[in-house]
Amino acid sequence: MPLTILYPSDVAHAVDLHGGADGTEYKAGGTDVVDRHHQGILAPRTLVDLGRLGVLRGVEQRGDGWRIGALTTLLEVAGHEGLGREHPVLRQACDRTATPQVRAMATLGGSLRQKVRCPYFRHPDFTCWRKGGQECFARPGDNHWHAIWDNDTCAAVHPSTPAAALLALDAQLDVHFPGGDQRTVDMRAFTTFDVSDAMADDALPDAALVLGVRIPRPARPTRQAYERASARHLADWADVETAVVLQMDGDVVADARVVLGAVARRPRRAVEVEQRLNGHRLDAAVIADASAHAADGATPLPHNGHKTRLACNTVQATLERLTS
């Protein structure tokens, strides 16, 4: 299919060029948009290429934390020494995402806004909700890969591994909105949206441009880890993934963030686990007790019940890495 590529001169120009038009998307690393264009899956007809907007690239340490430009590649994020030392959860998450070749192209902004990987969505012969259809084929079909929460309309899981880590870090996004507003949106707000809208993946309008990600300096020392359950060690999508950031008061967990990925339409905080960690020393009994609640309230589909156990075990494995 023919493709038009537009090269904006600056950020505001990019948002204007996008204009929320059907069939128009940004191109950052291109690993998702180019693939979908070639495969004819919700294929963009126009790409607004962000590649020349140098202001969107780079990792910077500031007084109040870190700022990462949206065009920074996952390889650069994972390879940044200082950032990785302070926020290992982000480094580990980016490092386990995709393959070296893809990480060298994929950007942090693109990873947050990539489209879902549901095999029905990615199959040319299924016209699901997201492709203008009137149904989800996964719910009555093979929903082995799918959501165990938020699965009433579209049952695809949010694809982003880095998003799970950023939610656990209470990160914020600098966003340029259509119309010219620039605002900060925290990850919690970014991931809070009406899941009955089968097309939605986050709280931003399509044309909103993510300029960068801020990671605020945590109030206390933290312990952080990312872990996933997958058949292959590397280069596999996660069956379930977990990002954990614990703010510590000495040996006691003061404020826990436990995020599950690949289980819902958005990265999901396991509040039931967090509550059972807060105020406790991180020992085997506390971990076992808390992680058993990782899937509380889940509503699995017929073929993905296994994700509830994987969720509990992945949380447990991640927390166990943080005991000392």
């Binding site: 038009t4 537009l6 090269y7 001169s9 120009h13 590649g51 020349r52």
Partner: peptide, 15 residues
């Protein structure tokens, strides 16, 4: 792809 585009100018690769 080097640097920021010159302001006010849109490069385009038409379909």
């Amino acid at each position: 792809g080097a640097g920021d585009g010159a302001a006010g100018r849109t490069d385009e690769l038409p379909a």
